[in-house]
Nucleic acid binder design. Structure first.
Lengths: 344, 344
DNA sequence: CTGAAAGCGCTTACAG
DNA sequence: CTGAAAGCGCTTACAG
């Protein structure tokens, strides 16, 4: 059996309650007593049993992380580890632990969340995504359980605290950058619009074209596999007027397209320009290095965790949402078109 | 206040102990009683408080994951999410939760572990790495705390259950593959030998050369950044007899070198062949697609979690270590040398 | 088959 | 400044 507060109390000749107070550094305990008790704790190798503490405090000092339904693709997307790192750094400082959902399907994840929430296993939650018709979201709102979302809520936007990029602006900025260097036929390659982030970026793309008076939108939706990269490039090659630039929304998709382009002997950026979102090592180490919109995933995670912890410590805090600015990182995957090329 | 077992008991007109037995589906409770109680649980929206259950059971049904000291590099290495996924799948099936260390430095991670272990916050641990002189390892061994290591223990190998690839063989196989297609000057680019995995792979490389009677080893150690890739390639270019193949040990390092090679207008595989370890989307989507040694990270995580859970459920189980086979995935980053080229 | 009681290891009003 | 006592919400021998 492990050593408990009682063992310490007995050996130090004080009451268990005193030991408990020493543990929390209660101001009214004399320095003398504290030292005596601490010495005994040291000798006995005492460590508080957190399970017991959690029960009486009705709190677990733990934050749960709700992952997105997994797919081959999302698994390797560098977004996840970067966000996780941001959350982890803040939570470590504030002495919270991290518990993760382990479910694979949406239904399993829902069950994980119910168990965490009702079982009091976590004090609050961070949702790593925002999507349409999410039973998890409904469940949390109904129970008024504290949580913060990374991404823009699809519904109940006035009741949810969230941390996000301005994805409409980010995609608009990126599109306008391509326009500014002479591109007029720009294709957009995004993800499933059931996720808000993809809806937003597609809209940003549209807005930029509209502002510039360009009618033609070229929109694709692919996954990050060798095959879909190839399919997409096949489609591009069959177009009578091929786009001169491709705006992709994640690094792996971008790699898959890059790879298919090379297979068809198209050069980047000479024959076609390409951009992406996120700025992990992938963009930096790619050949050519990728022009990308850095969404600062570390900061997204950090701010989300910070907001949640503040909410937990002060349940009446004023609601606030945080927008993490994005920044355009120009590298070598985009080429400025000459007058000649523009009109080709 | 949440609804407790007492509320259910009162409304169902049974004792709290009966409710508890219904919860665990105790065989001696009549079907009738079970149904009555379950109906009330439903009506009241009852969910067991896991904190209380954990306390009395002296177990948390939680597995802790000890991460490696973080670095920019390891953060984006696809190894981590893949291993995590494997563990997560198994742990979900067995109804265990996952708690992660959040510390950044070795010292912080050590504190995280002590807290998890002494605080009874986890029933067992999985170490995601193996390294020299690890105080965490010593601590766990001293306390006889159940854990499984991913990687080969540097010390105490007979007391530790571990799951690993045969990294010596994996690197030897890869080197021999390169030899078999005519390469004789092969450079090895690995990581810090304080980690066992890197020691093993370097040894495998040496062994293969030795077996083939090749004296000259060319060994580098770099990190996965643009700069170190460039530095490495600069060194290669300055060699009087440049290697015809490079064996790298992770995908990001490989990308960084690939990128530096292209910058120097060296073509892969025409001018130089290159291989890596791991087979994430990065290898598949790279241009050219990378010949790689698949270490099956998902399975490493899955088997580690499985071993740990079995150990927790049967503390007297026979010790066993698991070696997950590696498999060579041939893609387009290696070229067979002609007789001519071999003797160049 | 079910209930009353003790207990898991803490914390925290309430006394003094 | 410190102690005795109650209680957090469960589980589980022990009775009957």
């Amino acid at each position: 059996m492990a050593v408990t507060i009682k063992d310490v109390a007995k050996k130090a000749q004080v009451a268990p309650s005193t030991v408990s107070r020493v543990l929390s550094d209660h101001p009214k305990i004399t320095q003398e007593t504290k030292e005596k008790v601490r010495k005994v704790m040291e000798e006995l190798g005492y460590h508080p049993n957190l399970l017991a503490r959690n029960l009486v405090r009705q709190s677990s000092q733990t934050v749960g992380i709700i992952m997105k339904e997994s797919s081959e693709h999302s698994l390797f997307d560098p977004f996840f580890p970067a966000v996780l790192k941001g959350m982890s750094d803040l939570l470590h400082d504030r002495e919270y632990s991290i518990l993760m959902t382990t479910g694979e399907t949406n239904e399993e994840i829902y069950q994980d969340v119910v168990k965490m929430v009702q079982g009091k296993n976590v004090d609050g939650l961070i949702m790593l995504y925002s999507r349409d018709e999410d039973p998890i979201l409904e469940h949390l709102l109904k129970r008024k359980f504290p949580f913060v979302m990374i991404g823009k809520p699809a519904t109940h936007i006035d009741e949810i605290m969230y941390v996000d990029n301005d994805n409409v602006k980010a995609a608009r900025d990126m599109t306008q950058y391509l326009l500014s260097i002479g591109h007029k036929r720009i294709a957009y390659v995004g993800g499933n619009p059931k996720f808000e982030v993809h809806k937003d970026r597609e809209q940003g793309y549209r807005e930029a074209l509209q502002i510039s008076g360009i009618q033609e939108t070229i929109i694709f939706q692919t996954s990050a596999t060798r095959e879909s990269g190839k399919e997409l490039v096949d489609k591009l090659l069959k177009m009578e007027k091929r786009p001169t630039a491709i705006l992709t929304t994640d690094e792996l998709k971008c790699m898959s397209i890059l790879s298919a382009l090379y297979a068809e002997s198209l050069r980047v950026p000479d024959d076609i320009s390409i951009t992406t979102f996120m700025d992990s090592l992938i963009s930096e180490l790619s050949s050519p290095p990728l022009t990308t919109m850095d969404i600062h995933p570390f900061q997204l995670g950090y701010e989300a965790a910070k907001t949640l912890v503040e909410l937990l410590e002060n349940p009446n805090m004023m609601r606030r949402n945080i927008l993490v600015p994005t920044s355009l990182v120009k590298r070598q995957s985009c080429k400025k078109l000459t007058m000649n090329e523009e009109t080709l």
